[in-house]
Nucleic acid binder design. Structure first.
Length: 278
DNA sequence: GACGATGTTGGCAC
DNA sequence: GGTGCCAACATCGT
């Protein structure tokens, strides 16, 4: 679930609740997701909480930044009264507010993806790490940068949209929604498309992500934001997960592809015609 | 109980 | 460089 809109929702929620407050304690409960030995900046105040692509960045006023990669099921939520929720891996205690990092599938890291050390580093170091691996941020990329990111790329559009080095922040749900809104088939290749289609794709990218942010993201299972709210974008999904249901725009039955490998893609054959075979 | 899905990412082979 | 396969995990539906 955590794609760009969910990360944005988490970052905004945290920012509103902890900015200016001191970190009083941090307790890592599962090595490998966070790091028990790392010295969290206890005593430092939160300067801001921001988002880059699908990652949440907690900036402290001592110059350090904590990078949160949410993986498939990572959540940051208020600590409930009583026992810690199942799969709580980190407890963050701020002045007047306490949060848990919960991640059942354990694919997230309080660090870069798949690295078992906490990335709690000088802000510039974290920023450099991000810039080396991430393309322009999908929600605010301008048209020239968007076109440039896709120019000369050979592959099909859906895998390109999922590639964080091409455009950063889009995952499986929003890739399908964006392609549907743009009326482009997921297997179409950017080089074969007229510029007008790429412009539609650019506009659709920004529109879909902005709407999802406005709805606080898409809630699967028990995802909640740091303020405890649920994401409402699920009701607005046009194709994702709607195999066999009617397209809200043209009435055709939504289809599902088992592709790219290991994933699924939903699209509307009426709105998103097959690309011409070469 | 088995099997096959699931929002991410990175490494590998071809 | 593109593509496919696998891995890391727990959980849920059939």
């Amino acid at each position: 679930m955590p794609e760009l809109p969910e990360a944005e929702t988490i970052a905004r929620g945290l920012d509103g609740q902890v900015r200016g407050r001191r970190l009083l304690a941090a307790r890592c409960l599962r090595k490998g997701i966070c790091e028990r030995k790392v010295r969290y900046p206890v005593g430092a105040r939160v300067a801001s909480v921001r988002r880059r692509a699908k990652k949440v960045l907690i900036h402290f006023d001592d110059g350090t930044t904590l990078l949160v990669s949410l993986g498939m099921s990572g959540q940051v939520r208020p600590r409930p009264a009583g026992p810690l929720p199942k799969h709580t891996h980190l407890l963050l205690t701020f002045e007047g507010a306490e949060f848990v990092y919960v991640d059942p599938r354990r694919l997230g890291r309080l660090a870069p993806p798949r690295e078992a050390t906490t990335m709690l580093a000088p802000a510039e170091e974290v920023a450099r790490w991000c810039e080396e691996r991430l393309g322009p941020d999908a929600v605010d990329v301008g048209w020239p940068a968007f076109r440039e990111a896709l120019a000369r790329r050979r592959g099909a559009l859906k895998p390109l949209l999922l590639n964080q080095r091409v455009v950063a922040g889009i995952g499986n749900i929003y890739a399908d929604e964006i392609l549907h809104r743009a009326g482009i088939h997921p297997r179409a290749r950017p080089a074969d498309l007229p510029e007008a289609a790429l412009r539609r794709l650019h506009r659709a990218t920004r529109t879909v992500l902005r709407r999802a942010i406005r709805a606080n993201g898409t809630t699967f299972r028990d995802y909640v934001t740091p303020t405890g709210a649920r994401g409402d974008f699920g009701k607005l999904l046009a194709v994702y997960g709607r195999e066999g249901e009617r397209c809200r725009r043209c009435g055709a039955a939504v289809e599902r592809l088992r592709w790219p490998p290991g994933r699924s893609t939903w699209y509307c054959p009426g709105c998103q015609p097959e690309p011409e075979e070469i």
